[in-house]
Design a binder for these strands. Structure first.
Lengths: 337, 337
DNA sequence: CGGGGCTGTCGAAGCGCTTCGACATTTCCC
DNA sequence: GGGAAATGTCGAAGCGCTTCGACAGCCCCG
């Protein structure tokens, strides 16, 4: 393994000079810099990460805690994770992947061991167990998701309340008066996942304002679960003409079932989904949807965390504005009767 | 930040004693050990990762290189990544997430900086660019996937050749004589991804043995792409009664389209998929499938890498045996005519 | 032309840990 | 009961880097 000392000897300078060339924290003459850089290249030198972390108390690592659960939004999570890793690299950071497995203790372990300079938490619950630990640690952090009490935390998320409202508005504008919301799996609500609840708040509030009736049903993904849920919905509210789907693995089953039941989309039934673009576009009917900007969320989270590490100040919460794209699955409500 | 020295002082022993309590590399009397452990607990001590890495030249980090591409198997990748992270923790390792973004250079960077003790590469191509770099570095590595020349590398993968053969056998056994294989996106074949090609080898070889005709068509995911592909298949081979699908985002569209065309599954057409269990079970018809054991692959990869780091010897390649689960999408071929 | 301020470089200290050899002490066995 | 072999603990060196203060040489200006 090549060390800084060897580079220094090879270039005929002192170790500290090499270090300053690398970090740029002091001015170095062009001639010296070039000589050192050449030596670095020739010897194939890479700074030892451990030594660097020890000396500078900076590991250049950002920890990313992903949820262990797979009952939800897996592709979205993956997309965020990839965006985080990629963006982090452009700022000179690597990403440590932590799963929920370890529990909230992971926060303490990472902060205590100085393994990472900062953390990004995904899938933040409204009353997330990790947050108290995060509060007492000094490690900078950014949450993807919005907890019940975001005070003092920096958060990035899609504005799900606005998203819910937007979906209702769209359907109401088309004349729909009875709307069903097909939500995430029941477990997601039970553990008070912020985005699911906030979406419903947005839906309900706007529905009241617009005089629309709303029925909300959680739904596991998949065809069978969707079939059962759908039957119950039409049983309870036969006049339902609009659907909002917030569960990407329910989108295609829903379209499929409606077709099988002889209900035409969008002539008889309109469907709006909250899901990644890809899902909306690849479905059997191109679905009107509010996109989940996974990449954007990952990118913004990293940028905020890097800003904090650079000592720049950072706004507390950033809620990305939802955008609804009209496609082929929504249209005017059928004439009553 | 609590240091080892403070723990030592608190417990009334020397620093080295605390270190030995932590590592267990020398015998420590029960009394002393308890005293030290108590101090550790009381002070909330966590060893500094950088210092430890520097002194021991072990970072206790495993680097995981995931593909950047999203044209393929994303949920499978996620599942593997999570399994890797979770399994790694049980062995005392953390996982560093690297994306393909950085290119093969990442291998050199990680090896050179001693950031990680070992690497796991996912999505290995037949002639993967990273492999030459890996060969010349001393960093232990495990590949998930099988390159063209696996000599000297430790690999874990599903036995895709056997998988292809198994699918053909199943269909042939049911009397199907004309089979179409719906593959991954064309780009996947163009870059010579091992698993895709090996599946086709297995399919073709067994098909010859069993006197079955095979037509292979790559297919992007999604409904529209599948519709086009399907039309071309029936155009070219109207007698096709069996389908093998190796693209999880084509499974549901295929079932859907067949239904729309009035072809009953499994009465007229049998479908066998190579996909995660969840996809097979959640589809509109429960699909006969060979599962992709993502978790198992991630777990085995970590176990191999840890074995190497422990100096234990490790077999070069482990190919997991495919298992075909019969569900509702495959049945006897319709009588000829 | 001499003092003050830059610039560019160096040496040394130290980050927190592991690990090696040394040294007491205890235990064992003949 | 005495020497050899364990057993348990300590001190010190050093891992490879960053960073601080020092300092030599330079230029500039009065």
């Amino acid at each position: 393994m090549v060390t800084l000392a060897e580079v220094a000897r090879h270039a005929g300078v002192s170790a500290s000079t090499v270090s300053y060339v690398l970090s740029g924290k002091r001015t170095i003459s062009a001639a010296t810099r070039e000589r050192v850089e050449l030596s670095i290249k020739e010897l194939g030198y890479h700074p030892n990460a451990g030594a660097r972390a020890l000396a500078s108390s900076r590991s250049n690592i950002i920890a990313l805690m992903v949820p262990l659960r797979t009952d939800m939004y897996v592709p979205v999570m993956m997309e965020i994770a990839i965006a985080v890793a990629t963006t982090a690299r452009t700022h000179g950071y690597d990403v440590l992947l932590l799963t929920g497995e370890e529990g909230p203790e992971a926060v303490r372990r990472i902060a205590g061991s100085a393994l990472a300079d900062a953390m990004i938490l995904m899938d933040v619950q409204l009353d997330d167990e990790r947050l108290p630990l995060l509060r007492e640690s000094e490690t900078p952090a950014v949450l993807i998701g919005l907890p019940a009490d975001p005070d003092g935390f920096t958060c990035v998320d899609l504005d799900f309340a606005a998203t819910g409202a937007l979906c209702v508005e769209h359907l109401a504008g088309l004349g729909h008066r009875e709307i069903a919301v097909i939500g995430e799996a029941a477990a997601v609500y039970e553990r008070h996942t912020g985005f699911a609840e906030r979406t419903m708040h947005g839906v309900r509030k706007r529905a009241v304002g617009l005089g629309v009736r709303v029925l909300h049903r959680p739904c596991e993904g998949g065809f069978a679960a969707m079939a059962a849920t759908l039957a119950r919905i039409f049983d309870e509210r036969p006049g339902t003409t609009g659907f909002v789907v917030q569960n990407e693995s329910a989108v295609e089953p829903l379209l499929n079932l409606l077709r099988q039941q002889g209900r035409a989309v969008p002539e008889d039934i309109s469907v709006v989904a909250v899901c990644p673009e890809q899902v909306a576009v690849q479905a059997s009917v191109r679905v009107t949807s509010v996109a989940i900007p996974a990449q954007e969320m990952g990118r913004r989270a990293v940028e905020k965390v890097v800003a904090k590490l650079d000592g720049r100040s950072v706004e507390e919460a950033e809620l990305l504005k939802p955008e609804l794209t009209v496609r082929a699955s929504s249209g005017p409500a059928p004439a009553a009767g």
